[in-house]
Write a protein that binds this DNA or RNA. Structure first.
Lengths: 347, 347
DNA sequence: GTGAAAGCGCTAACAG
DNA sequence: CTGTTAGCGCTTTCAC
């Protein structure tokens, strides 16, 4: 089966000729720019319609905008991130902007490859969700192109920031569990050593929030953090480690730093013959659809991902239209969603 | 905090000047084109390195390639699709190509918006995963730009195709359940009315495969298809409907057309007080990480998503380098992964 | 083997 | 309000 040949693209010149106007006028109509009479507008729009014209983004990139927003998600498998994405795409739906995503990244090198690819493709703005890159790289990106960093603490003049109050979110979980009567509450965190990330990444803030809340509730002596990673595997290993201890040192409740971690934690508990919440309470973070899944029914912290996405777009569009405006930071408040995976500890 | 000003980009002219050669030579080195001496190559590469030059994709788009591959995924929440994506990105890792994803689509209009945006951005090739668009639109896309359609049956001269043998996959499930002694095996499908999609979409093929396999096993009289959708909600509704029947007409096993459907099915069974597999066996399709999750342990069909992605890239690169080559179709064989959610029916 | 120059489709400065 | 035109950064003839 021979593939059919491709036809030449319709250009702005074709439209201008067909509408019997200049290319400038067509360009103005395309960009809703000032200085095109209503009748000219309708003529041009009709010609565009009739010819099926669409502007070539590459050509636009050389002179102006491409009407493209790049979004970088760290892990497409983590069910929390689609929420942010939904907020972003919904906000952009009625505009001329198009969203394109980078493929999942794990590590600074891949992030750099993706962000640079987006810059090279003349994108008008970037939304970076929970990037792990160094502060210096983020500022490099923010300097080259309007950028919003989502889900990372610490602000910069070079980019805007939208974040959840992870410190408070962790406190909500600890308060909930302490209120149920738990004392030995353990936390499974994503291991972090880099000093910048230790200060800025959500996982580090959740661990800090956990420690602080434990102190506030007078549970200082039970502070118990297991360092693995924010993956299913990390949760599994974390609970295995907790269960390998002498019975008296085992926690009655586990606060997993993310729902995906809680999944692995539940798996390890199940394999060890423990019932949840009978033998052990488990709480997560992100309030993903998985947490709401009835047979699991995981207590979790809701971060309002869509709201984060909407805010990111608002800031980004503001900055695109005014490159000079001072950088801004938006912090949203999380809320706890109690479900059946947490209950009073056994006597 | 005032954002710092952006510097002018390094261009090919800067590189040429710095290396004391012509822009033509630099261009040749960039594209590994014929006609550049080894010493010229090293000089140019050194200049590129020293200046931190990266070619502007928009400018390239006007004359040649952009080294960008667009991937359209139908639903970022379905955990099967990341597998395909992994196969794609892994195959492209060592090349100069960059992958960009379209945001999740639901419906023909959104798909058209995304595919056209990708064409307008001068992408070199497209991988469309389980698109719902009309055949005509797919051919329109395939005519404009090298395209591989993944997970959809029916081939075309305008694009290449990679697909799983969904018909066989469904048969594997039915054979497994029939082998366990089940007679009343129900199937939850994604409702489809469009004639093209009825012939080409995987969900329709799975339903056909189910019916055919039931006949082969002499279970014709128990054929029982519930039409909902390939979502968690669809699975939930499907089982609710099955359970609303008189006891004698209820199935002892349910074949959900996708793991995400099985999730909802399990939820409905759980709410109805049924144990799985004690009171009802449940099987899915896609072998997602969720299926392997121990507390669930869902019997499922493995589609080798990464293999699909790798094949898609291979076909795409072939076609990019030879637009005229006849279109190809690759069909992969699925395999069954039995787990604890299926067992012999109760007496 | 190397380089000068045309031109891809668009935007924006400028002239009318 | 409308049109002419230079030029964005690159690839690609076509001379040399």
């Amino acid at each position: 089966m021979e593939p059919p040949a491709t036809r030449r693209r319709v250009t702005i010149v074709d439209v201008a000729r067909h509408a019997r106007v200049s290319v400038t006028s067509v360009s103005k109509v395309l960009r809703n720019a000032y200085g095109a009479s209503p009748e000219m507008q309708t003529r041009v729009r009709r010609a565009i319609e009739e010819l099926g014209y669409r502007p070539h983004a590459g050509a636009r990139a050389l002179r102006g905008q491409t009407y493209t927003i790049g979004v970088m998600l760290p892990d497409i498998r983590n069910p929390f991130f689609p929420e942010i994405l939904d907020g972003i795409t919904a906000s952009l739906e009625e505009t001329d902007y198009q969203v394109l995503l980078g493929p999942g990244c794990n590590g600074e090198n891949e992030e750099a490859r993706v962000t640079e690819a987006m810059i090279d493709r003349g994108m008008d703005g970037l939304v970076l969700v929970a990037p792990v890159s160094s502060r210096a790289h983020l500022e490099h990106v923010g300097t080259a192109i309007p950028t919003v960093v989502v889900g990372r603490h610490g602000s910069s003049p070079a980019y805007d920031t939208v974040t959840d109050d992870d410190f408070e979110g962790a406190a909500l979980v600890v308060s909930h569990l302490a209120g149920l009567g738990h004392r030995r509450i353990a936390h499974i965190e994503h291991h972090e050593t880099d000093p910048t990330r230790l200060a800025e990444m959500p996982n580090a803030r959740r661990a800090d929030g956990y420690r602080q809340a434990m102190r506030v509730h007078g549970l200082e002596e039970w502070i118990d953090v297991v360092s693995t990673s924010y993956t299913q595997q990390g949760g599994y290993q974390g609970v295995r480690e907790l269960l390998s201890r002498p019975a008296a040192a085992r926690p009655t409740a586990v606060f997993a730093g993310a729902d995906i971690v809680a999944i692995g934690a539940l798996q390890a508990a199940s394999e060890a013959g423990l019932s949840v919440p009978g033998d052990m309470s488990v709480a997560g973070y992100d309030n993903t659809t998985f947490a709401a899944f009835d047979p699991i029914s995981l207590t979790s912290v809701d971060q309002a991902g869509q709201e984060m996405g909407r805010n990111a777009v608002r800031l980004l569009l503001e900055r695109i239209s005014d490159h000079g405006r001072p950088s801004a930071k938006v912090t949203l408040s999380p809320s706890l969603v109690p479900r059946r995976s947490t209950a009073r500890p056994a006597e």
